[in-house]
Structures are given as structure tokens and as C-alpha cells.
Nucleic acid binder design. Structure first.
Lengths: 204, 204
DNA sequence: CCTTGTGAACGGATTCACAGCT
DNA sequence: AGCTGTGAATCCGTTCACAAGG
């Protein structure tokens, strides 16, 4: 699967979503220019990305939306991604209730907490387990990715648990760097840094 | 201010935070190698970044932590960033309660909602206003950045409101692209795409 | 030595310019 | 004319290799 750059892949998800919007709007054809207007990217960028997947469009016509969507999905989104959440605090709860996963191929299959009072409950259909049960539950649920949504002082030990569960992908919402083996991919989402660096970017 | 790349700036925030950790741990000197170990970056990367800001370190010795922190802050973080939140649903509430902003120079100064029942309340000390009051409140509060945390169907109209309020920076948590004038910076944080593209990245 | 600082080399991604198709 | 597809050129960021300095 991996002759494509990470950036191309991320944008492909954006294309797929945009194509779905267009389908709902009743469109059947779209040009790279139109996709560019909607997504805020450039038309060349979009054609370059799509050209990775073969010759899909037709000159003078554009892309057939359903066909393009199918091709993109075949390359980047064969499976549903199963995610386990660690930490059901404010942020964790919001993630469990986030409505954006259903239409995408993302499914949160389990949540883990230390607080005994939350264990055994369900949020949005997802059961909350004790963090000690993580190895067992994670393997039963065929999870691929773990989310760290615990306070920063616990981030590293949760990361260790996630690694011990055999997962190879981590989304880290805590504002500290975590140490993991080289074969584990980590994506940090640090809200404070996002805000601060956007602010710097504005000062151009 | 802006001869530095966006990436350098983001990493600088990470350095500042790491230096604060080291200060709390009682350290006074640090090498680029040590910073590299903690942050997961390379030592050369760190030295390159720091060299943008002048000659700060001393060969054989390393960097004086307080001095380096001061210099980084002077370049990237002169002011507190004032943020307004639009949408106090699950995600919006979690953002209001997020504990990571206090130690950083980020302050949420106002929240806006359409739901009358929430207006007038406070979450974590932040007052919730009617979205109609946004122009007045935003200018009074000296806000610089707006956060979109509303359902996707309202994202564009909230974006328009934020632009109309005169803000030039937007963090968009909704899974749709928004159209804004060229002088407005937008940072999209799309959870589903983060998960899906991390998953693709893992398949190497 | 050991660590910083940096010009040069490298690599990857975007943009340019245009060929080709209808 | 209007659009896709793409080699070439360019830009940007990272890494390399090494000079300089306590």
C-alpha cells in the first residue's frame, strides 16, 4: 500500500469526504479546480495526488465523482479502523460522543478508565473497562490504535500499557512527549501548541 | 518576527515546555542531545532551530536552561493568546475544561452558544454568551483566535461570524473545509482524518 | 575531547509549464 | 477552448559533516 506520501494520504481522506458532499448535493462530475475551491488546496496539487492512483479523470470533462471516490477508498481506506480510548475524563468523553466517526470508517470499540465509578458504564454505546483489563479487551476487540486522553502525569504509563497491548499506533492528546519503541507510530495533538503556533502564523 | 518557519515555531513551544520541566526537576544546564532524548527529535534539529535565534549555547557546556527559555519566549511567545470558543457542546465543554492552557500562554476569554439554556452560565470561569453578542464581546475581550466547535452544518456560518468579528485566526474542529478571506489563517483539526491517516502510516 | 553552530548535501513535496486529449 | 496528467524546476526542511571553541 505504501508508495504514497503521508500528506497525499491525509488529503485523500479530505477528497473522499468532499466527494461525498458533492454526491449528496446531486453532482456527478467534478473538476480538480472545483475540488480545489472547496478544499482550499490548489488544483495541481489535487491532480498530482490523484495521479498517484492512476489515470482517473478525463480531459475536458473532469472526474466522475463515484468512480474517483471508489478509487481513493480502495487505496487508502480498505478497513474500518478500531480505536481504544484511554481516559474518560472531559476530553475522553467528548471523543466518545464525537459524531464525526460514524460516517467515517473509524470506530471506538472500548474505553479504559482508572476511576472505579466510571467502570462498567457506557457512553454512546462504548463500554468503559478497568485499565487492568486492557490487554484482554484490546486483543478481543481487534483494536489497532490507542488514544491517550489522560492527565499528562499518567501519559507515559498509559503509553506503556498501550504498547504492552500490542498496538502500533497512538494518538496522544496529552501535552507531553511519550517514549515508545520505533515500531509504534505516534501522533501528538497538542491543543495549546496548535493555538500558539496559529497565533504566530497570523503575525506574518 | 517572521523569518522562522512554522515548524521551527511549533517545536519552539515544545522546547519551552520541556525546559520548564527541567527547571522543575532542578536542572540548570541542558545539551541538545538531552533535549533530543526527551522530545524525540534529533539533536541537530534542535541546534538548528535554536541557532535561528542567535548563539545561545556554549560548546562543551550546553545551554543554560533559563537563558534559552527566555530567548525562545522572546521570539515566539511575547503575548498571551486570547481565544473565543464557538459552540459549547461536548467538544466545546471539554476544551473549556482542558487544563493544559493555564500553564501555557493561552486563555479562553469567552464562549458562544446558540442554545439559550446554556447562555449566561459559566464553565471553568468562562462566560457563555449568545452568538449574536459575538462582535461586541469579542472586541471587548481583545480576542485574537476563534475556535469552531459546532456541528459541521453550522461550521461555515460560524466561520463567517468569526471573520465578521475581525478575527484573523481560526481553529476548526469541524470535519468540513471552511471558506475564509486570504488574510485569515485556518488550522483544521479533524479527528477522523488524524485516526485514519495514522492507521495508514502504520502499514509501512 | 565534547558540544555548539553551520555551510553543504540531500530528499521530498509543491509548483510550473506544457503536452495531450476531446 | 478546457481540462487532465506529468516531467522539470523550485522551494523547504532535515540531515550530514565538520569547523570552532571551551
Amino acid at each position: 500500500m505504501k508508495k504514497f506520501s503521508q500528506k497525499t494520504i491525509s488529503r485523500s481522506f479530505l477528497y473522499i469526504r468532499t466527494l461525498e458532499q458533492l454526491i449528496r448535493a446531486g453532482e456527478t462530475l467534478v473538476s480538480s479546480k472545483k475540488l480545489a475551491d472547496i478544499t482550499g488546496l490548489t488544483d495541481v496539487q489535487i491532480r498530482k495526488d490523484i495521479s498517484n492512483f492512476g489515470k482517473v479523470g478525463r480531459p475536458r470533462i473532469g472526474y466522475k465523482i463515484t468512480e474517483l471516490k471508489k478509487i481513493l477508498e480502495d487505496f487508502v481506506l480498505q478497513h474500518i479502523v478500531h480505536v481504544s480510548l484511554f481516559g474518560v475524563g472531559n476530553l475522553g468523553s467528548a471523543i466518545l460522543k464525537y459524531p464525526g466517526f460514524h460516517q467515517e470508517k473509524v470506530e471506538i470499540v472500548a474505553a479504559f478508565e482508572k476511576d472505579k465509578r466510571k467502570i462498567g458504564k457506557k457512553i454512546n454505546g462504548v463500554s468503559i473497562y478497568s485499565v487492568e483489563d486492557a490487554p484482554r479487551v484490546v486483543s478481543k476487540m481487534h483494536t489497532e490504535i490507542g488514544i491517550i486522553a489522560v492527565p499528562e502525569e499518567y501519559a507515559q504509563q498509559v503509553a506503556d500499557i498501550i504498547v504492552a497491548c500490542g498496538l502500533h499506533g497512538i494518538i496522544n492528546f496529552s501535552p507531553v512527549s511519550i517514549n515508545v519503541p520505533k515500531d509504534v507510530s505516534v501522533k501528538n495533538i497538542d491543543l495549546a501548541i496548535e493555538f500558539l503556533s496559529l497565533y504566530c502564523e497570523m503575525q506574518l
